[in-house]
Amino acid sequence: MVRQSLQDKKSVYGAAPVQDPVSSHTLAVIVDNEPGVLARVIGLFSGRGYNIESLTVAETDHTSRQSRITLVCSGTVHVIEQIHHQLGRLVPVHKVSNLTLEGTHIERELALLKVVGKKDKRIEALRVADIFRARVVDSTLESFVFEITGTTEKVDAFVALMRPLGLIEISRTGVAAMSRGKEGVHNGE
């Protein structure tokens, strides 16, 4: 509190504003796949103090060398709007879509989990995997590697259940997302 009042009185910048509630949004960003483009996007987030929860990127159109970045970011409505516009003005960015705002959308994440265990734990792991429709993609006598796809929540739940069953390693892709219905995210060219 003392610090706060000092800031109010003495800083040339005044006091920090009161924060609005924070929510999570999924953005699809179509970019030119050129050197530094990812650094530019990430640098924007770190430079302006925005939060990234997950980010996936891969080239989606080899002929025009365009990539799709799917970003899950959190912030106040105001911050999310800023993120949208700040991304939009980058030169290599063709299109930014806020999937959370633009109607319903589907999100999927893929995860690989290595679970090590014997006897009951091993059987239980298989049983839980079956319930979650996770596939066994590698197996030894003492371990499994499971592949699971689903929403972030589903993957989180699966990971939580596997933890006491000998989970030793996780690799997650982050969210890939797409809007429902016939409208696509095109770059408008």
Binding site: G36, A39, G43, G47
Partner: peptide, 14 residues
């Protein structure tokens, strides 16, 4: 240079 100037330029190229 492109790394250093990325955040202080509108666009940069190597």
């Amino acid at each position: 240079t492109t790394g250093i100037t990325r955040q202080c330029t509108k666009q940069n190229y190597l």
